[in-house]
Every structure is written in C-alpha cells, then in structure tokens.
Nucleic acid binder design. Structure first.
Lengths: 197, 197
DNA sequence: ATTATCTATAGATCTATAGATAATGC
DNA sequence: ATTATCTATAGATCTATAGATAATGC
C-alpha cells in the first residue's frame, strides 16, 4: 500500500489537477472529496493526509490554475512567432472551445462568482491572480498613459469574463455565439471598444 | 394547521421571495430546502406540495427575478423624472451597494455561472431573461444602426456582469473599487467605451 | 370533508477521522 | 520502523416522502 516518495508526490499532483478540472466543471459544491479522489485513481481516506480540508484543496488547486494562466500568457508575449499576443489571447479566451469545455476554461468564468462565499485563503488566491492577469493585459492593451492602459485592461477583462458567463447561460441559442462574437470584435485593437480619453 | 386560501398563496409568495434572496446570497447549492423554509417561517414538509423539486423552485424564483429587473428598468425609462435612464441603471448596477448586498443583486452576477450545471427549465429562464435585458438596453445605448445598438448592449452588459463578479472576487481590496469605477466610466455615453464602426 | 402545514423519517449524500494494511527506506 | 494509502465509519447534512394534525370552507 505504501508507495515511493516520488509516486506519493505524483499522486498529490494528480489530485490537484483533478480538482482543478472537476471544480471548474461542477463547481466547488458539485464534487465531493470521495468522487474527486476516485477520479484521481485513489480512495478518499488518504485525502486529509495531503490537504487540511476541502477548502484548502480549493485554494491550492486554484492557485495552480492562476499561475498556469499567467505563465501561458507570458509565453505568448515572449514568443517571437506570435505577432499579436493580445489578439491570440483574446481569440482563444473568447472561442467556442473555451465556452464549451468547462473543465479547462478560465477559473474566473466558472468559479469567481462563488468566491465571496468562501474563506480568506480562497479569496486571496483569486484577488492576487486577478491582479497579475491585469498586469499582463496592461502591457498589451492600447492607451497613452499607464492609467489608461490599466483602465483598458480592467474594462477588457471584465467584458471577457462576463461574455463567457453570459454565453454559457444563453447556451443552445444563437445569442450565445453572438455574445462571443461581439466580445471578440470589441477586443480587436484598432477602432475597438477600448476607451481613449 | 390549515390556513386560508389567501394565506396559502401568500406563503407561496414568501417562499419564492426567500428563495430568490437566499440563492443569490448563498448559491443554489449553499442553501437547503429545510433552512430555506425555516427562513420563510414554515417547515420543510410542506415544500413539495407547492413545488415539484428544488430545481423547480430555482427556475420559478429566478423567473421572478428576471421579470422584476425588466419591469424596474422599464419604469425608469417611462419615468419623465429620470432624465438619463441608462446612466441611472448603470450607476445603480455598478454601485458598491449592488456589489456588497448579494441577497438583492442581479442574478446574472451571482448565479449565471452555475446555470450550465442545471436543467433545461433553469437554462431557459436565464436565456430568455438575458434576451429581454438586452432588448431593453439596446434602446438606451448609442449606435447608428440597430445592429450597432445591439452589439453595444451586449458588450456593455457583459462588462457590467464581469465587473461585478470580479469586483467581488477582489474584495477587501482597492482593486475592487477600481473595477467598478472603470466600468462606470466606460458606460458614460459620450466618449465611452462603446464601439462605433 | 378537504387540505395546508406539520412532524418524523428514509435513504443518499458529504466532510472528516480512526485504525488497518503493506510497501518503502533506513 | 516508518508512512502512504486503504477500508470502514461517525456524524452532519441534503432531497424527498409518508402520514398526522387541525383549521378552512362547503
């Protein structure tokens, strides 16, 4: 029953990855520890040797997601083969694929609305993650001053998150595609919906 | 134990109102039938004589919320004492009060992200409600053609919903106020963030 | 007599813990 | 000997139902 130290670390990783997927797919309340551990190929009893509580798992798996998004966006920016990183990020964010695959989507679009009902640790993960998202977007967005860029980043990301959520709430409908299309066009830099004073 | 027909109808109303508040405050999974009925001043046993299931209550209470928002906005538009209905709607939507009082806020900002995980009846309530919100906003928003107005309504409401959700996820923070302020400014018609082709 | 609401409870969850098991790693 | 994971279970939920109770309304 006991496994090697390496395997044990790997198991912990698998639990974190599984949680990150299932929470986004089913919501924090939509999946229990027992089913989650089963999905990870383990049994529920071992869970509390690795995590303090379900709340602790929520905080740690979302921390993972937050870091991964930031580093993926930074890679696009650093990659010389990506000519327009903002366009690249916007079109993948506002794609039908990102709307339809809850398990792999942005955590703000599936889970942020539940955050006010959770503990401080979870709230901090979302608050800090949001700050770093906005810092990255600020460097990509148009604007003649720093303040203008920051405001544009906030306006744009708000619209993205709202558009994804509403497009899912409108699903089965032409409206759903329409919302994504509008948000995509709004993010096309020139002549865009972004504010200029 | 039996009450008058009038009182019985009133009780049903109270349950719907209580549900509308508690679902927004705690999420669909965050409140059980038993506690909900207790909040309404009743006991849980009678619930299923009035509603088919919890899912049925979700659909019906959200239907209520949806109709109420539409009629309140329409009143502002019809009221000659409100000189700028869009500004009035935007500033109350993006107020700190609306951010902080979950129990009375817009259902799209607290509950829409959970909709894809629910049944068809609930999905339809949100889809139809969203359509009517957009129809109202389309009449208020700038734009030289119908298509442009509709696109602007979609862009604006997406930003509003996203801004509220993110401002709550960023709570305790200066960032939270900043997000609301940006969205408010973005909605001030002239020189606004709204798209013009 | 009818029926709106009550009490009580079945059966299925859920989070968390206790202690057994068996393989690792000293 | 240590310990990662397992089985089993406590105790608290949750949705939904059954049948009792007592006031309405014919």
């Amino acid at each position: 029953m006991k496994v090697t130290r390496a395997k044990s670390i790997e198991n912990r990783e698998i639990v974190l990855e599984t949680a990150a997927r299932l929470f986004r797919e089913k919501g924090f309340d939509g999946i229990g520890i027992s089913d989650l551990m089963k999905s990870a190929g383990l049994t529920s009893g071992g869970f509390y040797k690795n995590f303090e509580s379900k709340e602790d798992l929520i905080a740690k798996s979302c921390q993972r997601l937050s870091e991964r998004t930031a580093s993926r966006w930074k890679e696009h920016i650093a990659n010389p083969e990506v000519p327009n990183p903002l366009k690249r990020i916007a079109s993948s964010y506002l794609s039908e694929k990102n709307r339809d695959n809850l398990a792999t989507t942005c955590m703000y679009s599936t889970l942020a609305a539940e955050v006010p009902r959770h503990g401080k640790a979870v709230q901090e993960v979302f608050a800090e993650g949001l700050e770093s998202v906005l810092e990255i977007l600020s460097t990509l967005v148009p604007g003649s001053t720093e303040e203008e860029k920051r405001a544009n980043a906030i306006a744009m990301f708000s619209q993205w998150v709202g558009a994804l959520i509403l497009s899912r709430a409108a699903s089965d409908n032409m409206l759903s595609d329409e919302i994504l299309a509008v948000a995509r066009e709004g993010s096309h830099l020139e002549g865009s919906g972004l504010r200029e004073r």
